[in-house]
Simulated assay, not measured.
Amino acid sequence: MGFIAFIILGLIAGAIAKAILPGEQGGGWLATLLLGVVGAVVGGWIGTAIFGVGLEEFWSLESWLLAIGGAIVVLLIWGLITGRRSGTRS
């Protein structure tokens, strides 16, 4: 998959992950979309390490599931990190 296609996949995966995990993860939509790109990387890494499947084709169901799953994981971690910060300030 090309670089631009990978970025688009990550952006869309971030938006889908945000729709699946509504609530306050901190950072707004822009941060969520950027975290989606990071999540696509994480999902591709996990998929390759555990299942032997990576982000190879843009229209592959495995690529989308890995990217969305990775984005959900990254958003959950981001929500925990930003939740702790805001909780300690109050």
Rank of each mutant, 00 (worst) to 15 (best):
G28C: 01
I20P: 02
V74I: 11
T48D: 08
W59E: 00
I50H: 02
L76S: 06
L80V: 03
G44W: 05
G47N: 09
G43I: 05
G47C: 11
S90V: 10
V74Q: 07
Q25M: 05
K18Q: 09
G14L: 12
A40P: 06
I7N: 00
A5F: 12
L76T: 05
E24Y: 01
L76A: 14
A31G: 07
A13W: 07
S60D: 13
G69L: 06
A31Y: 03
M1E: 11
I16C: 01
A15T: 13
V41M: 14
T32K: 01
I8Q: 05
L21W: 05
I8D: 06
W78H: 15
I8K: 04
L21S: 09
G23M: 06
G44Q: 10
G39E: 10
S63V: 05
L65R: 06
W64R: 01
I20L: 15
V38K: 07
G28K: 02
S86A: 03
V41G: 12
M1W: 11
I12H: 11
L35F: 03
G14D: 08
I8T: 08
I46S: 04
L33G: 13
S90P: 02
F58T: 09
W45C: 07
V74P: 07
K18R: 15
G54A: 13
L65I: 09
E57A: 15
G69K: 14
G70N: 11
G28V: 00
L34D: 00
V37R: 01
P22R: 11
G54N: 11
G54S: 11
G47Q: 05
G43S: 11
I8V: 15
G27C: 13
L33S: 06
A15N: 10
I12R: 08
L75M: 14
L9D: 01
A19F: 07
G2Q: 10
E56K: 08
V41E: 04
V42D: 03
W59V: 01
